[in-house]
Structures are given as C-alpha cells and as structure tokens.
Design a protein around this nucleic acid. Structure first.
Lengths: 219, 219
DNA sequence: TTAAACATGTGATTTTTTTCACAGATATTG
DNA sequence: CAATATCTGTGAAAAAAATCACATGTTTAA
C-alpha cells in the first residue's frame, strides 16, 4: 500500500470507472435500505453485469476501503464514494422544457436526488406552465443567460426538442453553465469549451437494442 | 476493398460503434428533414463529439457508402444503416409501470419510433390506469409471462421502481423476452441468459456529472 | 487540364479499459 | 489452532477501442 499521506491521492479516474462508481453508490443506497451490512466485489459485479476485478479496480481509484475476507462495508463504501465524488454537494440546476418529461425529472429529483436543487424552469412557450403544477419560477428561454448567471446554476437538463436548441445551448454556455444533460434526440455539440454534456437519447437506446436483435438474428 | 460478394460481410460491430451508428442514424433523420443532401465524417464527428476517424471506422463496419471529396449522401447513409441494423423492423413491446415516465415513453414511441409497437402495459396496481388515458390493454404484473408469450413481445420497458423487480424480470425471461430497457435505479442483473439489458439510470447520470464537477474543482 | 483542397477507407499504432493472477489479509470451521 | 475458504489490491498481460497516417478518389476553380 503506497499512500503515505492520510488522504489517498486520487489520480485520474477513467470515465467508465467513474460511471460505475455512481452505480455502485446507487446500489449501496439500496442495500443500506434493506439493512445489509457488507457486500463482496463479486456480488457487486454480478449486479452491475461486470467482473469482480473490475469493481475492485474501480474502488481502488478512490482509495482502499475493502476488507479481505468479508468484502466491503456498505456504509463505509457509500460514505467514501460520496466524499470523494462530492455527491452530497448541493448544485443548482434548471430544467429546459416543461413538458411531461420535465415533470418526471423534477419528481426524480425531489425523491431520489435531494442534492440537486432545481431553481428555475425555462420554456419557449411560457403559457404552457398552466397545464402543470410547478413550484419553481418559470422563464422564457431568452432569459437563460441572465438567470443562469444570477441563480448560480451549474447544471441544465434539456427535456424537450426545440427548434433552436443550438441557441439554447449557446445561451447556457454564455451563462457559464458547467454541465448539460440532454434528453433530446438532437445531439448537442459540446464545442471546445469546458462544458460537460451527457446525451441520453431514448430513441437511440431503443434502436440499439433493436439492432442487437437484428444482428443476432443474422446468424 | 475485400468483399467479393454483393453484400458486404458484417463482422462483429463493437458496441460503442453500434451505439454511435444509432446516433448517426438519428442525425441523418434530422438532417434529411432539414433538406440537407450530404455530410462529411468531420461534421458528423463534430455533432457526436468524436473524431472524424471514428465515424469513418463506424461506417466501415456496415460496408462502405461514402464518397471521397463530398462526404456521405445522407439518404443513402440512412438507408444503409437502417437496412443493416434492421431499424425499420417492427417489434412488439410492453411497458411495465404506467406512471408518468411510462406515458412519456409511449409518446416518444408514437412520434419518433413507429417501428416499436407497444401492445401491452403492466402495473401491479391495475386501478392506477384510470388516472391516465391509455389506449393499450393493461394487465396485472403476474400475467407478464403469459402475455409476453401470447403477444410475441420482444422488448420490455421498465419505468417504475417496484418492490419485486426481480420477480418481474424473472417473469419476463420466462416469457422469452429478448431485451429490457430499465429506467429504474435498481440495476438489473441480466444473468447468464441471452437477454440484453440496457440500464438507463437517470439518477446516476446526474451523479456522474456532479462527480465530474467535483473532480475538476479539486485542482 | 492541372493544381489545390477535401474526403474517404483502412492497416498500423497508440491509448484506454478490462481481465488476469497472485500475494497478502481476514474469516470460518472443525 | 491449524487448515481451508473467501476476499481484496494491484502490477502485469490481454483485449478493445480510438487515433493516426496515408494512399486513393472526388470536387472545385482557374
């Protein structure tokens, strides 16, 4: 074991590993709720659909926590991931597009992700907001830059296709946004700036599976 | 160029490439709607956030279609991806959990994914269905196995957390399901069978971004 | 028609990620 | 307390994926 200093030096965490760590965290939450005490890398791997080696390596990126012979203490593992990745840090967010998916996201946030504070909504058609019950201030999309700056918004969630999504992403960047989660089929070009974009294209996911079926049938 | 036979032999397409091909297809749809005629690998790459080499390699997996000097003919590219991946093939699907996310998915399907035929819905609380307008037959979850078999359902979309999600996935497998898209934070274990599972964990996606922020701040 | 500017397709190379293998540590059992 | 079984952490090896480099082909424009 190398680390001399108290805190393990976190090098670069490969993004697949980081992504899995977030999932391990979710799993730890689930298991904690069920009252479980510990879990082995093998069992974690089984749940995530990857090998145990993989899990151990992932955990090693954030410094050692496991115990030989009995696996990982769930509480400790969860706390460690939480601390290193800063998952409890509160972040202001906004939702762009207040249709049904927007509302779903807002509910997710409330129940499962209390560290995400949704402080604003945007919609090109502000009148739409009367059709849904919304408890956050809603603005027209042309005010994005201003509101993002003022409210210190770090993360934007785009939930509705929009003619001028390019314009929207431009305004977000001008407001100094740090990350965008895009549920729109239109793929966002992050550009050379330092904005992290995560495209979650539901349609493409369906197609991916459909394609897998097709390819496996061709044999 | 190797292929002697008329049809290009499709080897194994790496899954990142397959995933991108689905996105390229979405992009092609978008561009076609806009009336564009052709696009270069460089521009596709810019939109997907990857290098042009990457795109060319992806396209090469399904056989060559591009034209040096002027890029890819959008119509042709789209048609080719569609054919090789079988994206127009109709597939029966079901939705498990008829909450708001379920309804969102159903709308997606109607508008953007006509090849996906949703033939059944399941919910452990069948009475819930009165709260939403639904135009498909709804069954209690204990009938999953039977209905999946009878209706020839290939794909299941799980949209709601449920105490006994393990039971549900078991029943799906028994019914002979081919693929599952799981929007639930509970990660499904595909098991050793031949069922493709795609976990889309929205909460983890948020955490991933939040973690990226944290790590980039620590410098 | 020639030259310059663009693009593609792909073998080779590099980088990234996963998997392996095993030493060292802990638990368990009789 | 030994002997056995179970786990972790990690350097090394293997596999997978991205990137490069360049030969080859197309377009444009003078």
């Amino acid at each position: 074991m190398k680390p001399i200093t108290k805190k393990h030096k976190i090098k670069k965490i490969p993004s697949p590993a980081l992504s899995r760590l977030c999932k391990i965290y979710s799993l730890a939450e689930e298991l904690e709720d069920k009252g479980e005490i510990s879990i082995s890398s093998k069992d974690i791997g089984k749940r995530l659909g990857v090998g145990s080696h993989n899990i151990r390596k992932d955990v090693s990126y954030i410094g050692e926590t496991g115990t030989s012979g009995s696996g990982y203490d769930i509480k400790k593992l969860k706390a460690h991931i939480e601390e290193v990745l800063g998952l409890k840090k509160e972040r202001n967010a906004c939702i762009i597009g207040l249709g049904s998916l927007g509302v779903v996201i807002m509910n997710y946030q409330k129940d499962l992700l209390p560290s995400l504070i949704i402080v604003a909504g945007f919609d090109s058609n502000v009148n739409k907001l009367e059709t849904i019950k919304i408890s956050i201030p809603v603005y027209p999309t042309y005010e994005i830059t201003e509101v993002v700056k003022r409210e210190n918004i770090e993360l934007a969630v785009i939930t509705e296709p929009d003619r001028n999504i390019e314009k929207i992403s431009e305004r977000l960047m001008q407001g100094g946004i740090k990350g965008i989660i895009n549920f729109t089929p239109v793929i966002l070009n992050p550009g050379p700036g330092s904005v992290y974009v995560r495209n979650i294209d539901i349609v493409s996911e369906f197609r991916y599976l459909s394609a897998l079926f097709t390819l496996s049938e061709k044999e």
